[in-house]
Computed example of a mutant assay.
Amino acid sequence: MSVLGKWRIVDLPGYEDDYADIVEPAYILFEDGRGEFAFECITGAFADGATRGSDCAAIVFDWIGNDEMDAVCGSGSAEVEADGSLRGEIRAHRGDEIPFIARRWLTSSIPC
């Protein structure tokens, strides 16, 4: 299973249950060679993410973004698990290492 697509961050182990969704629903998105994420007051974007393996089941990336309106950068990694979840970690340069668990973001095809 590929990491490509939008994933809903459902858990940040070690943090309070509602921490991730303070500003908006927490997510991480992987597209062909780029992506973005948002959780709590942190947003980030990346380009040239490196996938490992022919099925793109894992990725490592460097990112730039904001944390409470302060510029921040770091690195991250994620891997699709056997149960279909995505597990990874987002690391801020000289800062926190935040683990996450995500599930595929299910979108509706019904117009609103």
Rank of each mutant, 00 (worst) to 15 (best):
R8K: 15
Y19G: 02
D17Y: 09
P99M: 04
V3E: 06
V23H: 06
A82E: 12
E97Q: 07
D83F: 05
A82H: 05
F100G: 00
H93P: 02
G53W: 09
C41I: 07
V3G: 04
A50T: 14
Y27L: 04
G65I: 00
N66F: 01
G14K: 12
A26L: 03
E89Y: 03
D62F: 06
V80D: 09
A20T: 04
E36V: 01
E16D: 11
E40F: 15
D32A: 10
R34Q: 08
A38H: 15
I98E: 00
T51L: 11
C73R: 06
R52P: 01
D48A: 09
E40V: 05
I9V: 11
W105C: 12
W7D: 02
D67H: 10
I28D: 08
R8T: 14
E24I: 05
E89C: 08
G14M: 13
A78R: 03
D67T: 01
R8E: 09
E68P: 00
C112T: 07
Y15Q: 14
L12C: 10
L12M: 14
R104W: 11
S77T: 04
A102E: 09
F46I: 04
R103W: 13
T107L: 14
I98T: 14
G5P: 05
D70A: 10
I22M: 08
I28W: 09
A47M: 01
N66K: 05
V10H: 11
F39D: 01
V23I: 12
S85Y: 00
I110F: 10
R91D: 04
A82T: 07
P25W: 08
I28M: 07
D17K: 15
G49M: 02
I59N: 00
D11A: 15
N66G: 01
I90Y: 00
E36L: 01
A58H: 07
A58G: 14
D62Y: 06
M69N: 03
H93S: 07
L29N: 13
L86V: 08
Y19C: 00
A45V: 13
S77F: 10
D83N: 14
G33C: 03
I28S: 08
E36P: 05
E97W: 05
M1C: 09
L29F: 06
F46H: 00
S109I: 05
Y27H: 13
D70R: 11
A50Q: 13
D70T: 07
